[in-house]
Design a protein around this nucleic acid. Structure first.
Length: 567
RNA sequence: UGGGGUAUGGCCAAGCGGUUAAGGCACAGGGUUUUGAUCCCUGCAUCCCAGGUUCGAACCCUGGUACCCCAGCCA
């Protein structure tokens, strides 16, 4: 219908518009998403993926997937596989343009030799500690390496021997010859190639004993692929002069434009790969796909849809300013998608037995229930009412706490969703005084209509005792108890900020029979509770496990909380 | 007392010298409702500060202030 959903404008699109107007890059737009395969993708990467692929799509351009695989000691095929799966799942297609920086190792090496010949690079024998000393500090200039003025011949020879594996790691380094007094630290003769003699690279094996650095690899890889706009996060802003320097030395290459934007941070979680890896390695979560993780695979298992994540990325925008997004924005995106598309069902998380005394023993009344209250095309399903049903413990209180309470109370009435109005006549308690059963009666004249002589304002969900299915339900909450765990200075280890209540496992929950054969990943709204999906990992046909993706908006909870605070 | 950035309502974010300063989330009221859901109305900012230029400034200039990033042979 309303297709005027114009993509939000942002400063990068503004730049691209200008470039197209001025005929830069012949009006082409070509981007790339360049992950290093050293971890799983997270929602922050999704921001970059949506940006790069989204721009390519909107400008009739192309977007490449390129693995930035220049550091064999940290990378693994496990990650190259998961990254492709996640990008595809998000709904993007790189077609035949899957590349690796390692595809360019030969060319990169050739360019390095070219720089040496030009006198723009040299082999340096300083060790790591000396390098640090020679580099200077933020406020003091560095000093030249003793090797800085060695002859081209010597440099060529040494570089060739580095390549042949004649030296141990750290013995030599190929450095750019720029300016040791440059105010930008990145320009103080940065490393171009380092020795990694025994390393086994996931793509190239053992054929290389030297590996190029990011600052040398990235601009050249971009140029090789005809990238026009090289989008990256803010911390690379200081590297742009080096990006440009490298390409300026190699005029035969095209010169893409690097543009930086700010990375995503989300409240109550962490986004650094190092910290996420730490959570996985230390078993603080069950894995990269733990539904509490901000990883794409975790969000997927939690029940998030690709659509909801893309929508989220659109809503948060692209700027250069620091930002921390509230969880509510992400949650709202998935609620919106699932509200429109998830079929409804009834599930009782904390069962309380109800016996409907005037409902004949052994009888079973089949009732139709809409799968979606606003969308008839989603059809109906049958639910079964019997003498014994379960309602949620939270939907019954001996006495109403206030006039706003509209669930069941002793002596009161409430409607069973999709069925009749019942009245609670009696409570049965155990020795500890806990209510274990309710004795009720139902009003047969209230199916599909309200009683005429009185008002019944509450509606609660329920399931038949013997036409329901026992399942496990996992309730997830924010991973951290601090909205900004990475900024908290009061704690030495961010893991001390983990929310101990981030996972609550409920067993003995009951879902209506229509869910008995729900396939892995299937999503539902459990009415009055939230959106849930069948866990794709631990759920089996015999014992279903549901993950709570997100709760419904709950204005009652808000009222309760305010009442508590007011008292 | 180095360099690079950023500052628009609680959180994001449009805006590019003339606008009643978009929109979303949140929040506060109200309406519909067999989900306290959804949906629908309504309300909610003079733009970090101080000067200046201009008939006119969130947008231009000057000077401040705050915060972020950089001293890996990581990316």
């Amino acid at each position: 219908m309303s297709e005027d959903v114009s993509k939000p404008s942002n400063f990068i699109r503004t730049i691209i518009d200008q470039d197209i107007d001025s005929g830069k890059h012949d009006g082409r737009v070509h981007t790339r998403f360049p992950p290093e395969p050293n971890g799983y993708l997270h929602i922050g990467h999704a921001k970059s993926i949506c940006l790069n692929f989204g721009i390519a799509r909107d400008y009739s351009g192309q977007c490449n997937l390129r693995f930035d695989d220049t550091n064999p000691s940290k990378e693994d095929v496990e990650y190259v596989d998961s990254i492709q799966e996640d990008v595809r799942w998000l709904g993007f297609d790189w077609e035949d343009r899957l590349f690796y920086a390692s595809n360019y190792f030969d060319k990169l090496h050739g360019f390095a030799v070219e720089l040496i010949k030009q006198g723009k690079a040299y082999v340096c024998g300083l060790n790591a500690e000396q390098m640090r000393e020679y580099r200077g500090t933020l406020t003091e200039p560095g000093k030249n390496s003793p090797a800085r003025d060695h002859s081209v011949e010597d440099n060529l020879d040494l570089f060739a021997r580095m390549r042949k594996g004649e030296f141990e790691d750290g013995a030599y380094l190929l450095r750019a010859k720029i300016d040791m007094a440059h105010p930008n630290m990145n320009m103080r003769d940065p490393a171009l190639y380092r020795i990694r003699k025994g390393a086994v690279h996931h793509q190239t094996g053992v054929q290389w004993s030297i590996y190029p650095m990011y600052d040398f690899t990235h601009p050249i890889s971009d140029a090789m692929e005809g990238i026009t706009h090289s989008l990256c996060t803010l911390e690379f802003e200081d590297h742009r002069p080096l990006y440009d320097w490298v390409l300026d030395q190699l005029p035969e290459l095209s010169h893409p434009q690097q543009i930086e934007f700010s990375r995503l941070s989300l409240q109550y979680t962490v986004m650094s790969k190092r910290k996420l890896t730490e959570l996985v390695a230390g078993n603080f979560v069950s894995g990269w796909d733990d539904p509490r993780m901000p990883s794409i695979t975790g969000l997927r298992r939690r029940g998030y849809t690709p659509t909801s994540i893309r929508e989220f990325c659109d809503r948060i925008g692209i700027t250069k300013s620091g930002n921390t997004i509230e969880m509510g924005v992400l949650e709202n995106c998935i609620r919106e998608d699932l509200n429109a598309n998830a079929p409804r069902a009834m599930a009782v998380l904390n069962p309380l037995k109800v016996v409907i005394e005037n409902f004949p023993e052994g009888d079973a009344e089949t009732l139709p229930a809409a799968n979606h209250p606003q969308n008839e095309s989603m059809g109906t399903r049958d639910i079964v009412l019997t003498r014994e049903v379960y309602i949620d413990k939270n939907d019954f209180l001996e006495v109403a706490p206030n006039k706003k309470f509209k669930r069941l109370v002793s002596g009161g009435e409430v409607r069973l969703r999709n069925a009749y109005v019942i009245r609670c006549n009696e409570m049965i308690k155990d020795d500890a005084g806990e209510i274990i059963e309710l004795r009720c009666t139902y009003d047969p004249d209230t199916l599909g209509k309200n009683p005429e002589d009185r008002k019944v304002k509450g509606v609660i969900h329920w399931v038949s005792a013997n036409h329901s299915h026992e399942v496990e339900v996992r309730l997830y909450d924010r991973l951290f108890s601090d909205p900004m765990p990475e900024a908290n200075k009061e704690v030495e280890d961010f893991k001390d900020l983990l929310n101990p209540q981030s996972l609550e496992i409920l067993t003995g929950c009951r879902v209506e029979n229509s869910l008995a054969n729900a396939p892995a990943g299937a999503r539902f709204q459990f009415e009055r509770e939230g959106y849930f999906c069948v866990d794709p990992v631990d759920s089996t046909a015999e014992s279903l496990v549901f993950n709570r993706t997100v709760t419904l908006r709950d204005s009652w909870a808000k009222i309760e909380a305010q009442a508590k605070q007011g008292k």
